[in-house]
Design a protein around this nucleic acid. Sequence first.
DNA 1: GTTCCGCATGAATCGATAG
DNA 2: ACTATCGATTCATGCGGAA
Lengths: 287, 287
Amino acid sequence: MIEIKTEIFLGDSKDILKDIGENSIDLIVTSPPYADRRKNTYGGIKPEKYVEWFLPISKQLLRVLKPTGTFILNIKEKAEDGERHTYVIELILELRKQGWLWTEEFIWHKKNCYPGKWPNRFRDAWERCLQFNKTKKFDMYQEEVMVPIGDWANGRLKNLSETDKIRDNSRNGSGFGKNISNWLNRKEVYPTNVLNFATVCNNKNHSAAFPEELPEWFIRLFTKEFDWVLDPFAGSGTTLTVAKKMKRNSIGIEILPEYVDMVRETIQENQFFLFETKEKYGQSKSF
Amino acid sequence: MIEIKTEIFLGDSKDILKDIGENSIDLIVTSPPYADRRKNTYGGIKPEKYVEWFLPISKQLLRVLKPTGTFILNIKEKAEDGERHTYVIELILELRKQGWLWTEEFIWHKKNCYPGKWPNRFRDAWERCLQFNKTKKFDMYQEEVMVPIGDWANGRLKNLSETDKIRDNSRNGSGFGKNISNWLNRKEVYPTNVLNFATVCNNKNHSAAFPEELPEWFIRLFTKEFDWVLDPFAGSGTTLTVAKKMKRNSIGIEILPEYVDMVRETIQENQFFLFETKEKYGQSKSF
DNA sequence: GTTCCGCATGAATCGATAG
DNA sequence: ACTATCGATTCATGCGGAA
């Protein structure tokens, strides 16, 4: 049996990344601290300084990624003084200048988004998952994230609430009703570039940037077993935990010691559950 | 009874717009020809030339819009040679330089997007609806687009405990307490910035850029009756048709004569249905 | 085992007030 | 004038205990 390696390093990604060999990582999936967010833990990066702060890190990411690898960047710009900030779209342009290909933009649709009411805007229910690549020939295992149509038809349609049916507003039969017959003789369908995951809001000790489903989906899509996954902003270690459960090697970098300690404990714990949870992560594809 | 005016002009928006008075339009909602798309109808604008082509038009749009008005731009960059084009995000940056405020980015989630399969990407199921404003004090009628409350309310709001009825602002200063009693008689909640509209799949020879629900939603949100709505790329006239049904005055501009003829016929037709459809568009709010 | 119910909490944003 | 802090507003979900 081949051992799965899961490592977490304490320090600044800009520095630590230099110790990782070039062309060695299959997938980078991360959610960096957003501008002016998490001030109490990360100090908060000023929006005007965000691109400048990120580029040295992404330069290293470009170096360590395999030519067939993928970089997924989960990020969302804040609204301030009535406007959306532009640092994220400026970052896209700068990353391309750095040599990255901007392959795709996935939308993470958060149904249970933050509450609140303002006179000039509604609640923000989505985030960007930007896909960047080093070359046009990257690995993509589309079949791994297919949605079983049986489950979709039975589960999704059955679970669809009455309000969902009203909200989704499938007028003149162009929604579920009309097209369902097309899927009767198929077993699975490919997903789209809009992903639905609920945010995590547990009453436990810490908060995670994204739910486990998010890195799980991208790991399944862009890696196979024993590949290497990197999260340069590991935080509470969601990416590493999921990678380990899915039998991928992983490396995390985190600047806050308390998070690093926590991740190390989590990794230890998971070893006991590795075999119990294998089935869940290996076969469910429950999207 | 006040008459509703619906006008369609034949010509290039860059020129025709100069005949419209400044500060006279309450809402601009449009879906311009996408770069390199609809070559057979519009001649196709090269992606590299897109921003340059659009800016003279948006300059006029800025002039004709009221200070309290809103500009909704429905657009999506195409994928070419394995990459997403950057002309849309470059356009956002240039529009800000022109004086526009980039207030928000709505996501139009197309649940029944076009089928297809590619080795390097999934089906594209979303488009941007970019909101721009002239000032920070724009009109917004949020109550007009409220949606039914989620099912969670059914089971949970029946019996409120005493602690539910008092505000509880304690705990880690996260800011949010609860006052569930606010929702006791609540049947509707505010929507988010993710919109679900099914695409129209008609096999006519003209390209309907968006379904009626899309302009209807923004017209309801940003205008009241007898306000003025403008679509500088009217196409088959969806915006005008909806505006008329909703008792808003409207102006359309379209460069192709056959579209203009078609729109004029449609407008005539709708006059017979004005009173029949009033109820549907005035009261349904079926989102 | 299920289902139901109480409860905590979340990458938020604006406007007013204070330094 | 410009920045920092504080108060107000709000909806969906998972967890855990009870029925």
